[in-house]
Design a protein around this nucleic acid. Sequence first.
DNA 1: GGGCTCACG
DNA 2: ACGTACGTGAGCCCG
Length: 883
Amino acid sequence: MNKKIVLIDGHSILNRAFFGIPDLTNSEGLHTNAVYGFLNILFKILDEEKPDYLTVAFDVHAPTFRHKMFEDYKGTRKPMAEELRQQVPVMKEVLQAMGIVIMEKEGYEADDILGTIARQCEEAGLEVSIVSGDRDLLQLATEHTKIRIPKTKRTGTEIEDYYARDVVDKYQVTPGEFIDVKALMGDTADNIPGVPGIGEKTATNLITAFHSIENAYEHLEEIKPPRAQNALREHYDMACMSKTLAAIDVHAGIEYQIEDALLKDFYTEEAYVYFKRLEFKNMLSRFELDTPKNQAEQHFKTITMLDEAETFFAEASQELGRSKAATGIALIAEKGQIYGISVSLSEEKTVFIKTEGFLTESYLLEKIQMLASCAALLVTPDLKALLKQISIPEEQSCFDTTIAAYLLNPLKNEYSYDDLAKDYLNLMIPSRMDLIGKLSFAKANEEKEEELNRLACYTAYISLACHTALEKQLEETQMLKLYRSVEMPLAFTLADMEMEGICVDAEALKIYGEELSVKIQELEQKIYDQAGERFNINSPKQLGGILFDKLNMPNGKKTKTGYSTAADVLDKLALDYPIVSDILEYRQLTKLKSTYADGLAAYILTDGRIHGTFNQTITATGRLSSTEPNLQNIPIRMELGRLIRKVFLPKDGFVFLDADYSQIELRVLAHMSGDKNLIEAYRHAEDIHRVTASQVFHTPFEEVTDLQRRNAKAVNFGIVYGISSFGLSQDLSITRKEAEMYIKSYFETYPGIKEFLDRLVKDAKDTGYAVTMFGRRRPVPELFSSNFMQRSFGERIAMNSPIQGTAADIIKIAMNRVRARLKKEQLKSKLILQVHDELLIETADNEVEQVKQILNEEMQNAAHLEVRLETDTKEGSNWYEAH
DNA sequence: GGGCTCACG
DNA sequence: ACGTACGTGAGCCCG
């Protein structure tokens, strides 16, 4: 068997991948779709061909001999899309890391390099495969050189293969003649001039008959269509030049040593680092690396025996007392089950103490609590989780590495220990996936115990090891204060809130659900009757079919997959079709039933309370998020939904006090922008939307209509979201023109706002991130997109994030202050929920007045702005009444 | 697992 | 011309 070489046209494949695959970015905001597509094609080819040699050629951005011949060669090309341009050096680095030879040479295009190597290899007796998206390469096909053209289809990548005979089959000309055809017909993409009046058909006919431009010229008289005959006579010189331009130079002056291209195992450690960074998770499985043990891993130890544990704790606390060092502690728990705790004292000492036998949960927690109090600094990947197990005095210095990493880049979707090791220690270590795959801790403890133990040790060790780098970066980015005085105390606040939970009346919830069921069944029947058949109303596809195909309703919007049946579409149809109103109501009821009535019931624990989770490291802006269940989206806008709030109850002897900020975001905007008029409006006015309406629509305050006020309110919202005329027009059901007028008038009224928003965008473009009053940052990579939509999105983010984020900072500060006051004044009342601009406190009956005062004071004084931070506080015997 | 829809601020 | 308001989470459908 002959040896085989694969040659790849780098730019062409990268280009093809870029346009064939939707935009993709890793968590650093690096565009990766082209690199991803390229590697996919590369792996497919390698798996199929198993070649002995491999080389990738790239074009160099410099004039070639063709430009010297013909100035306009390739014309004035559109600049490469920014997202693709970025990926070229990345691609090269990845290939280099894989040990793959890259060839490029000034004065030549990749085609010439590929052609030259192909001919040399073929002479040396090799089988050659050239991979390119460009059909021009077909001229290189021979009996031993195969041209492979990948096509990205929905079903995956398919590759068309061309040996010389396949070119003849498909194009009626040989590969050599292919150049002549191209020269005659020209190539607009490369700006190669053709012969006027000769297109693909005529060119092919001429060359099949005469085999070359030169020979055709010798037999000019015989050329059939007189039009073609004259054209060639007149433009022969140009055709000859085009032929030289189109011909690939197979004698390029390059130095190529085939031995260098020998395919070695390229699943190297170095390449692995790149694949990790690019987040090509499914490709990582190709690396069967026996990851060399990290230095620290040699000192990992698992403890399962009481005497070992005793010795460890005794030694560790003694050592900590002496050294005053930082200690890494990680709780290894899942679904309420604690599998053990890992402790890292230094690079030389990391242990995983398992809950097993004599080492009971309570023994372990007690010991860890003791150890934590000895540490000069407690470093952990999840402080809140730890606080829910052991009590740690607030004076204890703590460092949560996950929260630190979140502040440094809030856009990542996870902050796992291996990610942190990569980002802050430049260290590649096996991830959870690498170690225990998709197994739960419970399963892993049985089936992959060794790996679970390693994972546990890594979790504590990496946390400890990252602390210095994280703190340094927080300092450099001016976020250390935000971290220490807002986020760290907040972890304590949230831990308390989650432990406290909220009481939900399961019986009342059940009744509510049953009432919904009855109405849902009635509606269901009504809908089937009107539709004339039974179908799944919850399936947008089936519903769309019924409404728009069967009942022939006018269909406005479409989604990627079919008709849109979203509420705003159905609202318009509801006027004319009673079935649509029923469907809307059905949707509302089933939502209430499944998400709230049934959904919430599943979370009530034996203490009669729901203990949700407040996530501190999820949102891009700095807000909290709430899960399992989400207690931040309990219905309120519609009365039927709002009734659910009656099942949220204070415990005996307590009431609810609920306080929310009044228009906090708009007030933040007034302050941050310094707009005189808006600030002045807030100082005097009761009703800010009415004042806005009066000023924007030039109407005396007393004469502002409800419609004007509603419009002004929408504009105020729009401003905070990063206004666009389209968005506003949608919201108000007005034309874009009208929306534009509103916006223009608004900015004339509040010129300071306009200047401020413009400045936010400019600053974000200069620095790459948006920043809040308290220094919280959000990178905005979208600002640099070449796509208009994406870029506009980036601009709205740059306007909205500082506002939404500052409001989030303020309520976080308020939460900490409220908690501190409740504690200081030794009250039994507890903060239990936060809903972005609202705090709910379960308040002891005899503490109501005091807590009201605390809530108002601490919320209003959480920040001092140019305008007052007003709060509305209400008392109630359930959440419905209190809000 | 992604898309659609809808609940909240 | 492009085809959107900003930020979330959950349940359901369907390939």
